[in-house]
Design a protein around this nucleic acid. Structure first.
Lengths: 157, 157
DNA sequence: ATGCGCCGGTCGATGTCTTCCACGGGGCCA
DNA sequence: TGGCCCCGTGGAAGACATCGACCGGCGCAT
């Protein structure tokens, strides 16, 4: 039964617009059953939304980079995510263990824009930056696997 | 006109399952016009697919990490992506500039699984690894912005 | 054992959405 | 001016989403 939910998540993860009819066929359930399972997964937050996967080259944002940031003043409060949220070139922000405190993933149009963005990040968050430019992306956004381990079976209100 | 395409991509990027009716309302076009624009964006590869955004914690994969890899033998052919593709825990693989050659993004259930995965990566690709564990993710998969710069207006067959 | 309630399933009806087709207007060039 | 192409509109047909009613199995307490 939980298996079916995993299967549904996997299917939607690799084909986010597939119809309930398709999901029903692939899971062996009725359309209604699949429908209410998906709604439940959405309500529970297991499925947090849907998105189109985009070719950033075609959109004029061909330059991807990872920017690791480190606070200049270690005593300052660490609110970098809020300070950086308005910069729409930042696609993701991960708090990480290690020498640096966050890793950002950014998409820009050109090296010039990257330079500007780095300055904005430094001044907005009071951090130093270390940038790793992406040359190419063999794969990305691969669908979640059919999950080997035990699900946590946690309960929240 | 190109503006409208950007707008459509933005909308689908933040709400990947919105109906053509909704898109039509938000763009001021007719349903048919939006429909053929979306199809064209898909055919051209600007939209490469759709996916559900998933809560990996809820799926039993609460541990995210970035793994930077570097070939042990610099003379060996660099085919790491193909050698690693079968490892479904790897969600993304970026070729990068800098000291290391690739950055992988992985999702696993536990530190134990991460250890196993690291060994698999090392033996499968003949690389050394450097791992950065993600503590939390303030944001991720933010929709593409309304694009400031000039689109490339390239033409391909 | 029996009866009850809950969970999760099927079935069927209704309204919405997708998808396709025919048609029309504006820009461009001969 | 006429023809063509691109891109838009509108409408029709069928597929799909969505909701309610019903139903069967399971666990539990009587």
């Amino acid at each position: 039964m939980e298996d079916i939910d995993r299967r549904i998540v996997g299917l939607l993860s690799s084909e986010g617009r597939s119809s309930f009819t398709d999901l029903a066929r692939e899971t062996g359930l009725s359309v209604s059953a699949v429908h209410q399972r998906v709604r439940r997964l959405e309500r529970r937050g297991v499925i947090r939304g849907y998105t189109a996967l985009v070719d950033h080259d075609a959109l004029g944002l061909p330059l991807t980079a990872f920017i690791s940031i480190k606070p200049i003043d270690p005593a300052a409060p660490d609110d970098a995510p809020e300070r950086l949220a308005h910069l729409t070139a930042i696609e993701a922000c991960h708090s990480v263990a290690g020498d640096e405190s966050y890793i950002l993933k950014v998409r820009v149009a050109s090296p010039g824009e990257l330079e500007t963005l780095l300055q904005e990040i430094r001044t907005a968050a009071g951090v130093s930056t270390r940038t790793t430019v992406v040359l190419s992306t063999p794969f990305e956004h691969r669908p979640v696997a059919a999950a080997p381990g035990e699900p946590p079976a946690a309960e929240v209100s």
